[in-house]
Nucleic acid binder design. Structure first.
Lengths: 333, 333
DNA sequence: AGCAATCATGAAACCGCTTACTAATAATAT
DNA sequence: ATATTATTAGTAAGCGGTTTCATGATTGCT
């Protein structure tokens, strides 16, 4: 009934060698005479033997599995990162245990412990609120951790991202340069440090460089969804904004369409610039101008960095900052 | 230096009981005197003991981990399914090893063996070409498998999806009813049975019901991307189509925008209907009419079904077909 | 009080593999 | 030919749990 699993022991017996030898050939250990190796290989083939990765993990204390914590799988920003992670992980023969955190702090904590129990060799974390509690959870874990496309204000955890402050400054300055004085700042919750400590900082910096006063009323916090953006259109008019910087592309698409549907012409009467340069930017009409980020690369580099950490290789920089850009499309003049 | 991992053995010693007892309390086995249980619990707490899931997996032959094979993480269709899977998996305390197949057949095979080696308790497979080779790979695996949002023409593998033939028939008939005679059929490769055996069948059925001849020239195979759709606009005009049924939302968005940018008015001069009702449908202008599918539910139900299979519970139906609908938006008249 | 039935615990085998450490064989040097 | 050094291969001790089986402690019942 139940397919008999064939173990290393069976192979050893059949090939008339010890299990140690089988283990050696399976792991490519050179200390095996070619003839013996071939004999074992033949038996392996014949018996269709496949090493049990769990047993191997227990014995070797390496699972060749890493954990990836992602706030929202369906958010293009994160899924693009994940793709980069995935490709490189595959390249290095690692499997990925993917877990959603829903940006929920308790879940994040729980998930880390869970991954830890599963003995993952490393963890890639995406999420924008590195609390101290989270840090202690990181510390409890044996596995090295890297942050992908996220920020650690305290610069304690290895991280791969872009210079968000500079990017936002540039984006907003760009808006200012075309005469906009009342520029809305639209993002997710200010509890997230990427918004509070980075994007907002960039926004303020651009304003101050242009000697424009900061107006609290122009700051909008909402969730990262199309709907939320769509609903914001009215409020944006109420505060007499003539442009908006938006922290997420779906949110921006909502803003854009909400505005358009309300009869506001973009970009003639209102300019919109967004942040992540995901595929959404090309789909809307007008197409959305955006900060550009090497999304795939952020993921890929994170994973690469993690492999180094897992191998105890020396690292030059804990934090790697990738280049960003600005792409003009048709939602800005 | 290296944080000393505390094992069940340490707990046993400290609590002055045997490891068997510790194991019992950890696993909620009722055969433990309350006083003993409490004592052990205290020590566990005090030592911050966390069971090693790998060891547990080896001993119990259950890893509480399932494998999920996904063609493309960044495709909304699949990521929505994945979210459903993920939620239910979490509910049942399963972790997910997520692997991309890139629709690559060899990779799919390899990935299945790999998951199998990792001793996953079950597998959810998304992908639209269930070859016989793949079937044998499925068979080799001890773990039960269910197909999510995919089709098995031979109905051998447990599957959760919708009635694609009926859905497409309805969508195309809808187009026909408004006078369209030359309706393009735009999807991915005809190698995928979902296109060849289901969607195309529905398309032809609608035509034949309306006594419209089938024209090969109206069938377009391309890849599921915005760009591919965008480029198709010209060809669509060349064959004098007045409407299109499209098998993927991003692809449809491309078609739509390509048409619009070429000066064709949608829906006045050309109607477009798409298939997956993902978030893209709301973002384009005009908004895309679509077949609606309970994406999240397909994922969720698949996972639920898998849990039953993993527990050897009796199953009513191997194949569960969820309801679909048709949503009129503004890309159709 | 005496004996069976039930409950709580421990001893030890086992899960399938890795990895010292050791032994045997082969190669090289003297 | 003998001693010395490499190569190959085997032995066995874990890795950290689960689980069967046996045993001792309790409880129930007559």
């Amino acid at each position: 009934m139940d397919k008999q699993t064939v173990t290393i022991y069976d192979v050893a017996r059949e090939a008339a060698v010890s299990m140690a030898t089988v283990s050696r050939v399976v792991n490519g250990n050179p200390n095996v005479k070619p003839a013996t190796r071939q004999k074992v290989l033949d038996v392996i083939d014949q018996l269709d033997y496949r090493p049990n990765a769990v047993a191997r993990g227990l014995a070797s204390k390496k699972t060749t599995t890493i954990g990836v914590i992602i706030p929202d799988l369906t958010n293009s920003y994160f899924s693009e990162l994940a793709r980069g992670i995935d490709d490189v992980a595959m390249m290095y023969k690692y499997n990925i245990i993917l877990t959603s955190s829903d940006e929920n702090h308790d879940k994040e904590m729980q998930v880390i412990d869970n991954l830890s129990a599963k003995q993952v060799d490393g963890i890639i974390f995406m999420g924008n609120q590195i609390t101290d509690e989270l840090r202690t959870a990181f510390d409890r874990t044996h596995a090295p951790i890297v942050l992908a496309g996220s920020v650690d204000p305290k610069h304690q955890v290895p991280t791969v991202n872009i210079d968000y402050v500079a990017a936002v400054t540039e984006a907003v300055s760009n808006l200012i340069n075309r005469g906009n004085k009342r520029i809305a700042f639209v993002t997710g919750s200010m509890d997230e440090s990427i918004n509070r400590d980075y994007r907002l900082k960039g926004y303020k910096q651009a304003l101050s460089e242009a000697r424009i006063g900061f107006d609290d009323g122009l700051v909008f916090q909402t969730d990262y969804s199309y709907k939320a953006g769509y609903k914001l259109a009215k409020a944006l008019q109420d505060v007499k904004a003539t442009a908006a910087f938006v922290g997420d592309d779906e949110l921006a698409a909502g803003v854009l369409n909400g505005l358009t549907d309300a009869g506001i012409r973009v970009p003639e009467d209102f300019e919109v610039i967004t942040s992540n340069d995901t595929r959404f930017t090309e789909m809307t009409r007008p197409r959305m101008s955006s900060i550009t980020q090497p999304l795939y690369d952020i993921g890929a580099v994170s994973m690469r960095l993690l492999t180094k950490l897992m191998n105890n290789e020396s690292i030059n920089e804990q934090t790697v900052v990738l280049p960003y850009g600005l792409k003009k499309r048709t939602s800005t003049k």
